[in-house]
Nucleic acid binder design. Structure first.
Length: 579
DNA sequence: GCCGTTTTCGGCCCGACTGTTTTCAGTCG
């Protein structure tokens, strides 16, 4: 079976790690890591690119990398990788995933203590064998144990991030929908509900002739193995490890099937109780009368809910978090949609670590239907991201004003910043600088592992600065690699509520921060929400849909969201926020 | 190892934080 892009990317990633452990110069290490990243981001299959003779158009792919990719594509193997793998025990690479353990420590554990796996490392730490190694002490040993525990939590969680699963699922669904005889189709399950991570992909289709559909499904290129294949349900595992379940029903049973496989389990259990109270049993096939007088078929979800005496419930809020009671009263709130959005208030340009100019980002945002944007490059403290000094910030303002003048009045470009909340709690720009900006985001990027009191105090300090309009990705999580900061969210919400500052739903699927449950809490407290992409490239402006999904899961309505406001409303709000 | 270009080789985001080592190495972002 041909290797997938993801598998090939992983091989380059592993080569990079192994070279680094061996002490190879960092730039050669980075060359392999860059290629791995580039391959992961590819919108096309490597085999197709190779067939077109276009491998060398991929970023960071030169002569050597082209040869190695070709070797993998044609033979399924890479000799260079095999040689390294024979030299370095695989458990050494696993150790790199422990926070606080890098290539040097991993090598040291191996060479000086004979440790070749995370398990052995954990045992050694528990037996106090690490603290005596040169350059280490009790604190390092304790830190490593903590890191291992965190790693285990993450490893136990084998769920797939939304941002990976959704495009993969959509691609499969599109191909299934193109088959003859197929009517409707939808992503179902936790993916349809927009959960930040998902266990597996559920797809539901209608057709009266399932057999060719199931055959096609099981023989798709990305299928690694078929876990089961029947006439109504099939299940496969893809090369990237993702499990995909397909359910096929006749068109007249579409509504019940979609509700059933849409979940959540808690929601389904609750509405099945309601069905019982009304004299039915509810399953994926139909509502069946308990008195044995037959089935009622539902070809739409609306019909299912109607028969249960309820309003249709948007899938994103089917969690049994109170939506069923509201639906019975026909009082489900009108959730925000993509069409409500007027603007994107958080994006980066070549001035810091973005890839496109102010003008290019502005035009791309306009092409996506936005009416205004704010340019919010990093501040000076984010040195790694080429953060702006005060001088560069002032110079940037000239360019923003220029582009704004050229594009207004139908489209407006405003000048802002994504300012570092420094590790010591101070802000990266003084108030007199902030006062000159149209919009100020403050974000935590460093010191995310500080104790709760300390990291919370830093965030509160930013919230209480009247020049700050928005807290960017408040909790600082990275899905699935990094847990959120240990923030006292009650204190954060209280301060936000008091000051009128806005909190962000960062739409990047790696962040989705605030997550739904926090967004809902913010909305309940009357705290304004901003849904932003934090785009560093033009195509990332399209990540907005993930933010919308997350907001809907958080019961966010259009009026809660700054980005739905007109330019005039937005400006009025941000001006009255200043001191 | 790639890239850009001074077309042949130097530069490649580099400062903060931590812990331990008293002057810095390792890790992280």
């Amino acid at each position: 079976m041909a290797l997938s892009n993801r598998e090939i990317a992983q091989i380059f990633e592993d080569v990079s790690d192994m070279l680094q452990i061996k002490g190879e110069i960092i730039h050669r290490v980075m060359a392999y890591r860059n290629v791995a990243e580039a391959i992961r981001d590819l919108p096309r299959d490597l085999h197709a690119i190779h067939a077109d003779g276009q491998l060398n158009t991929i970023p960071f792919v030169g002569k050597v990398m082209e040869e190695k990719i070709t070797e993998l594509l044609t033979t399924g193997k890479l000799e260079f990788y095999e040689k390294l793998a024979a030299e370095i025990p695989p458990g050494i690479l696993d150790m790199l995933r422990i926070t606080g353990v890098g290539p040097k420590k991993a090598m040291q554990f191996w060479q000086e203590a004979g440790i070749t796996s995370v398990d052995e490392l954990e045992a050694a730490a528990r037996e106090d064998k690490l603290s005596s190694l040169s350059g280490m002490g009790a604190k390092t040993q304790a830190r490593i144990l903590e890191g291992i525990e965190s790693l285990r939590r993450r490893a136990a969680n084998t769920r797939t991030p939304l941002g990976i699963a959704l495009p993969a699922a959509q691609s499969i669904l599109d191909r299934l929908l193109a088959l003859p005889g197929v009517g409707k189709g939808s992503i179902a399950g936790s993916l349809r509900r927009g959960r930040p991570t998902i266990g597996d992909v559920d797809l539901v289709l209608t057709t009266n002739d399932p057999e060719p559909v199931m055959k096609f499904f099981a023989s798709m290129d990305e299928v690694a193995r078929v876990l089961g294949q029947g006439t109504t349900k099939s299940s496969v595992e893809l090369h990237n490890g993702l499990q995909v379940d397909l359910v096929v029903v006749p068109p007249e049973r579409w509504g019940t099937a979609l509700v059933y496989f849409g979940g959540s389990q808690a929601h389904n259990i609750h509405i099945r109780e309601l069905a019982r109270q009304r004299g039915y049993t509810l399953n994926e096939h139909a509502l069946t009368k308990l008195d044995g007088s037959g089935e009622i078929l539902c070809d739409t979800e609306e019909k299912v809910y109607e028969l249960l005496g309820m309003q249709w419930v948007p899938p994103e809020i089917r969690e049994d978090w109170g939506e069923i009671e509201l639906a019975q009263q026909h009082r489900i709130p009108t959730l925000i949609t993509r069409d409500d959005i007027q603007s994107d208030l958080h994006m980066h340009t070549v001035w810091s670590d973005g890839k496109f100019t102010i003008r290019e980002m502005a035009e791309a945002a306009r092409a996506r239907g936005h009416k205004y944007i704010v340019i919010t490059d990093h501040s000076r403290g984010a040195t790694i991201a080429n953060g702006l000094t005060v001088e560069r910030l002032m110079a940037q303002r000239e360019e923003v004003r220029q582009v704004d003048a050229e594009m207004s009045p139908d489209f407006r470009v405003f000048h802002g910043t994504e300012m570092e909340i420094r590790a010591d709690g101070t802000l990266d720009f003084p108030d007199e600088v902030l006062a000159q900006l149209d919009f100020v985001i403050a974000s935590l990027h460093v010191g995310l592992r500080q104790p709760r009191e300390q990291v919370t105090a830093r965030l509160l300090n930013a919230i209480r600065n009247p020049h700050v309009d928005l807290i960017g990705h408040p909790r600082g999580q990275l899905i699935p690699d990094r847990d959120p900061a240990d923030l006292d969210m009650d204190a954060v919400f209280a301060a936000a509520s008091e000051t009128g500052i806005a909190l962000e739903i960062n739409a990047n699927p790696r962040r989705l921060d605030l997550e739904a449950q926090y967004a809902r809490r913010a909305v309940e407290l009357g705290i304004p929400i901003a849904i932003d992409t934090d785009a560093h490239r033009i195509d990332e402006l399209d990540l907005l849909s993930y933010g919308i999904l997350t907001a809907r899961r958080g019961w966010v309505q259009p009026h809660n969201v700054i980005n739905t406001w007109s330019v005039e409303q937005f400006l009025a709000w941000s001006r009255q926020r200043g001191p």
